[in-house]
Design a binder for these strands. Structure first.
Lengths: 212, 212
DNA sequence: TCAAAAGTGTTAATAGTACACCCATGA
DNA sequence: TCATGGGTGTACTATTAACACTTTTGA
């Protein structure tokens, strides 16, 4: 019993924008909403905050339920609190975005949830305000990748510089000059060449790894 | 009645970090908590979200209650959701920061609430996680002011370049070379000289205004 | 032999940093 | 007359942008 008892309480959902990089495109994991309202509509991965967990823990739990992954790069994006944002009942959503390596996650779990990857540039209409959430997250990672090597979360352990450049281009939505890109990357020190060669291209390309 | 009824609900507070610029220092408006737990401890300006308002509206309402101001520059900072962050009861806080001109606000209102301005560099211990909130907001406006003319929200209509520089220095926590500062500002186009002169310095200084 | 992706340097433009003196005036 | 804040330019460095050809090899 506290002094707060006269104030209303709210359902708090957590929505996770799970980004992956596949076939040269930045993708988002979505699924069909399993309950009303909006059952069957496309939706971000989400759930409700429980009494015994922090909001951050809730986001981690939900991510693990859908991907099987722990220790994922995940950041809080924003809270979405319009009164009518969920047509069923008042729900305030706290949104996180995560960057994962699509090769590592548990496909069985995402099968159970009917989850699938969709290209962030060809995003279908999602329920409620979920499209807005994705756009905001996208702008955020676009800013972040200019200063921090968050690509390490999206790429496999070994990758070519061509793939790394494609990743940057798909996140930034621009094309980048190859020589400038390779120089600017090599001036940083978060990747290093290995003596492995990728043989999927004719000539073969040096495989790199992140040092971090 | 919806499918959500089995999930717990939470009190949602909104805390506002109200920044002002006074006597050459960046300041924050704080007051003494008027209720338990922590009654009398120093606290950010806050309140609880009501059923009929969005979270954004709630932040605007709270800001207006304490300052009398509408149409203020205000941005959402983050949600703070640790289970034990409020020792009284589980409360999830959604935090906003606002930039106001200290000359415009309604001092009568802030008197009622016992609010006072404190230097952000000499912030006393605030209740709960409020110090952390202020530090995060501070880093945010430090980033923002490098690219956007948010100083317009903190300064009076007419101001000298010396005052503008002091504002930047207090936000960034660094000293700036006067000639470099004046050049970089004049290369942008968000301020313009007026033919007014500030007479508080011996020589007198040109007064500028924001063009936006 | 040729298509496809890998790999590689130089120059120009822009942005940022360092630095010191004279000016106008009120007290 | 002097203390105070106002006002000004140049040289150096770092960062970013523009731009084209050769290499390797599997099909």
């Amino acid at each position: 019993m506290t002094a707060y008892t006269s104030y209303p309480k709210f359902l708090i959902s957590v929505d996770c924008i799970i980004f992956g990089f596949e076939d040269g495109h930045l993708k988002v994991l979505i699924h069909q909403r399993p309950y009303e309202p909006g059952m069957g509509e496309l939706s971000l991965i989400g759930g409700f905050v429980q009494s015994n967990e922090s909001v951050d823990s809730s986001a981690k739990r939900i991510l693990k339920e859908f991907t099987g992954l722990n220790n994922v790069y995940m950041q809080q994006l924003a809270a979405f609190g319009d009164v009518e944002r969920d047509p069923g009942e008042r729900v305030i959503s706290i949104v996180y975005y995560a960057l994962i390596n699509v090769d590592n996650y548990d496909m069985h779990l995402s099968d159970i949830h009917n989850a699938k990857w969709v290209d962030v540039d060809e995003l279908p209409a999602l329920c409620f305000d979920h499209n807005e959430m994705v756009q905001k997250a996208r702008r955020m990672i676009g800013k972040t990748i200019k200063t921090e090597p968050i690509g390490s979360n999206l790429l496999p352990r070994y990758f070519t510089l061509g793939l790394l450049q494609t990743l940057y281009e798909s996140i930034l939505g621009t094309s980048i000059d190859k020589r400038n890109f390779r120089r600017s990357i090599s001036e940083k020190d978060f990747i290093q060449a290995t003596n492995l060669i990728d043989r999927t291209s004719r000539r073969g390309a040096t495989l790199y790894k992140f040092t971090i």
